[in-house]
């Protein structure tokens, strides 16, 4: 009898704690769907890849494609733009990257990037001939004044990163699969 009095509370404690723990896990499991519904849904994810025909883009011209609701900048770079991009020393950059890291080897004339400023998400200008290209002959974001160079690297302004490269591959010389 005396031992029972001693042991019973311990057993109850254990039961209380396990009950509470199971209850907490159950509650968390029940709440998770209520939270996860906010994340991108199946239709948003389904738009995960596009095939872009780049055959009609002339040298020096830029075209914007749409991928996952985002603008994709494709620029057919001139030899001068490529040479300029290669010539920049890495220590002059905010987010150092060589030109070779920004393009596919053998296709250096094609620059494929997500056209969203890495600062606060505006679409930089510089795709159309009449738009400002910034101080580094690439793109200029009018929202808070970020300048990108001809390899889409951030050179001046508040943006912390270079323009993002989407996952892409060349299916042929004229067809790019983005996503």
């Amino acid at each position: 009898m005396a031992t029972n009095v001693k042991n019973d509370p311990n057993r109850r404690d254990f039961l209380y704690v396990t009950t509470a723990a199971v209850g907490a896990v159950g509650a968390a499991a029940a709440v998770w769907p209520l939270i996860d519904q906010m994340n991108p849904d199946a239709t948003v994810k389904a738009l995960a890849s596009i095939e872009a025909d780049i055959s009609s883009i002339e040298v020096g011209q830029s075209v914007t494609f749409k991928w996952r609701g985002q603008p994709i900048f494709v620029r057919h770079r001139t030899p001068k733009e490529i040479a300029d991009a290669i010539a920049v020393p890495l220590e002059d950059m905010i987010d150092p990257a060589t030109d070779a890291e920004r393009v596919v080897a053998g296709k250096e004339q094609w620059l494929v990037m997500v056209g969203i400023c890495t600062h606060l998400g505006c679409v930089p200008q510089g795709q159309k001939p009449n738009e400002p290209k910034g101080e580094f002959n690439g793109w200029f974001c009018p929202c808070h004044g970020s300048h990108y160079d001809s390899a889409g690297r951030i050179r001046k302004g508040p943006a912390p990163k270079n323009l993002v490269l989407p996952p892409y591959e060349f299916l042929s010389d004229t067809l790019v699969k983005i996503g």
Partner: peptide, 30 residues
């Protein structure tokens, strides 16, 4: 776009939070 992108400044989880807030990769119908 600009204000939700403010959350992408959070280190490591910023972009996950951004997608969670806007329900997609960019501001859209959701």
């Amino acid at each position: 776009t600009v204000i939700t992108n403010v959350f992408s400044a959070i280190p490591l989880v910023g972009n996950t939070i951004l997608e969670f807030l806007v329900g997609g990769f960019v501001v859209d119908n959701p």
